[in-house]
Design a binder for these strands. Structure first.
Lengths: 297, 297
DNA sequence: TCGGCTATGTTCGAAAATCTCACAGCGGAA
DNA sequence: TTCCGCTGTGAGATTTTCGAACATAGCCGA
C-alpha cells in the first residue's frame, strides 16, 4: 500500500551518473556513441541505463536492439535532462573560467592541420591563457564542458554566438611528383576521407568537373587522407585552409580551382558561458584567418 | 602553455555527485545540513566539496569554519546548479509518475499524529496509488524527488501550487488527570517542542493569556511533546488537528480557547511535476480536513 | 582565561558503485 | 549463409565513495 516514512535517498532521485548515461544514449541514439562521449565502454552505458529503467520502473527504450527507439517516457525524460545537464556543465565551466582557463572542443583534422601549428603564436600573444583542447566528435556541433567548439560550420548552423573566422573552399590537391606522373590530377587515384565521403562529388558539382573512374582509397579522417596525399598516394579534395601551407611550400599542388562553401571555419561559443579568454582567442582566430592566402580559383 | 588534445573526462566536467554535494551545502549554508539532506555524513560532503574546489581550481567557500560564506564563484555556481538539479529531479519524477507512484515529503509531527492514522482511508479509496513518504526537514518548504510537500505553511509561503486543506489553530492541551491535580492548565509544567520553541508565547500573545513561571521541559519534536502530554508530564501548545482526536477521545483536555494561525496545513506541489495521483491525494486531503472538528474557542 | 559546545576537516579501513573484459544474441548487409 | 555492428549480461577488478573516530577551530558563558 505505502512505504514507511523514510528519507532513503535511493529510489527518490536516481543516480545522477545513470541519468547522464541515459541522456547521452538517448541524445546520440546509440549506446556506443554515448560510451564514446562519456569515455567509458558501451557496457557501462548499457548497465547504467538498465539500472535507471529498473529504478524508475519505466521502459525508456523499446524496439529491437539494433534500432532502439525512445519510449514516450524516455522522450520526456530526455527533454528534461538535456538542458539541465547543459546548465550544470556551463555553470561548472563558468566557475573554472575565473582563472583564464579556456577549453575548446576541436575537430581533429582542423586541429592537427591548421590550429595546432598556429597555437604557438597564440600562446606568445596571450601567455596568461591556459588552453585545454578536447577532441570533438565529427558529427557534433556542441560539447559540454568546453567554452566553445571550433569546426567547419554549415550555413544552417550559423547564428548568434557563431563567429566565422575563415571562409571555406574545397578542391583537389596532389603531390607534385604524382601529378607529373599522372599528367592530370583527375586521373590519379582518389583518396576519400570517411568523414567527408562526398568531397569529390561536391567539388565536381560545384565546378562542373567530370570525374573519370579511378581507384579510390578510404581514410578515416581528412588529415589521414592529407598525409596520404603528401606521401604521393593520390589526389584528395580538402578544405583550402588545411592545405594552404603545404601548397605554399610546394609539397602539394592545387592545379584546379577550388569551390567556395557556404558557412566556413567558425568558433561556436557555448551558450551560457562567458570567458575573456574566449574573446581573445576568437579575435586571434579572425586575425589568423584574415592572414590566410585565398584559395585558387 | 596548453594541454594536449585529449578527451579525458576528468577535469572537463566535475563529478556530478560533488556538484550536488556543493549545491546542497551552499544552499543550506552548512555541511551538516547538506549531509542530512543527502543522507550521508558531513564528512562525505566536506570531502566532495573539497575535491570540487581542487578540481575547479577555485575557492567556493571562505571565512572561518563555523561561519562559512560563499565566494563570488561559489554564488555563481550555486545559482547555475540549483535550477538544474531541480529540473533533473522533476524530470526523473515525471518519468516515475507514469505508474501511479506518489512521493510526498511530510513534516514528521504532522505525519505521525495526523496523516499516517488517516492513510488507511486513502489507500482504501485509491488502491492504485503507491504512496512513498519522505521525512521533510523542519525548516524546508521543498524537497527534491517528491511530488509535493505536506506541512504547516505560513502565509508568506502561500501561492500557486499551494493548497490549504485544513486551518491551523494552536492552543494548550493537558492530560485530564494532571489538569485535575494542578487545577489550572497554566500552572502545570510546560512542555516545549524545539521545532516550535515560541508556541506558548505565540498563543499567549494571541489570546491575551498570562503565563506564570513554571517548570519547562524541552522536546525535539511536536509529537514527542504530545506524547509527553498524554503521559501526564505537562501542558503543551500544539496545532489543533494534531490533538483533535485525543481531545475527542478524552485522553487530552483543551480547556482554553485556541488561537487561529494564518496559513494552515497545506500541500505544496513541486513545480514542474504533474501527477494524477497528487490531484487525487489533494482532493482527499481537503475532504479529511473538512471533516475535522473545529478548534475550541 | 577556561572548558563546553558546535561544526568542519582529516585519516584510514570498509563498502558500494562502477567499469572492463569477454562472450552471447539478434538483425541486417554482403 | 556468413559476416558485421550493436546491445545485453556475468564475473572479476578497480575506482569511487562512505563511515567512524579523532583533530581542530571559534563562539559563549562562567
Amino acid at each position: 500500500m505505502f512505504e514507511n516514512l523514510t528519507a532513503e535517498r535511493s529510489g527518490v532521485t536516481p543516480s545522477l551518473n545513470a541519468l547522464r548515461a541515459f541522456e547521452a544514449m538517448a541524445r546520440t541514439g546509440r549506446a556506443t556513441l554515448a560510451a564514446e562521449e562519456l569515455c567509458v565502454t558501451h557496457s557501462a552505458v548499457s548497465r547504467q541505463v538498465k539500472a535507471l529503467e529498473r529504478g524508475l520502473g519505466v521502459a525508456l527504450f523499446s524496439g529491437p536492439k539494433h534500432a532502439l527507439r525512445l519510449t514516450a517516457a524516455g522522450q520526456d525524460l530526455l527533454a528534461g535532462l538535456t538542458p539541465a545537464f547543459d546548465a550544470i556543465a556551463a555553470a561548472a565551466l563558468r566557475a573554472r573560467s575565473q582563472t583564464d582557463d579556456l577549453t575548446l572542443a576541436v575537430n581533429a583534422s582542423t586541429s592537427v592541420k591548421w590550429l595546432i601549428p598556429r597555437l604557438g603564436r597564440f600562446a606568445a600573444a596571450r601567455p596568461a591563457v591556459r588552453l585545454r583542447m578536447l577532441e570533438l566528435a565529427p558529427y557534433a556541433y556542441g560539447q559540454r564542458g568546453a567554452h566553445a567548439v571550433v569546426r567547419i560550420v554549415r550555413p544552417e548552423h550559423l547564428g548568434p554566438g557563431v563567429t566565422v573566422f575563415m571562409p571555406n573552399a574545397i578542391g583537389p590537391v596532389i603531390a607534385p611528383q604524382l601529378l607529373a606522373e599522372a599528367g592530370d590530377i583527375l586521373a590519379a587515384p582518389r583518396l576519400v576521407a570517411g568523414t567527408h565521403a562526398h568531397g569529390w562529388a561536391e567539388w565536381a558539382d560545384a565546378t562542373g568537373a567530370r570525374l573519370p573512374p579511378v581507384q579510390e582509397r578510404i581514410f578515416a579522417h581528412l588529415h589521414f587522407a592529407l598525409d596520404a596525399a603528401l606521401a604521393g598516394l593520390g589526389a584528395v579534395v580538402l578544405p583550402w585552409p588545411l592545405v594552404a601551407d603545404e601548397v605554399a611550400a610546394g609539397r602539394l599542388a592545387a592545379p584546379l580551382p577550388f569551390a567556395p562553401r557556404e558557412g566556413g571555419f567558425a568558433v561556436m561559443a557555448t551558450p551560457g558561458v562567458e570567458s575573456r579568454a574566449l574573446v581573445q582567442f576568437t579575435a586571434w582566430l579572425k586575425d589568423e584567418g584574415a592572414a590566410m592566402a585565398p584559395a585558387p580559383g
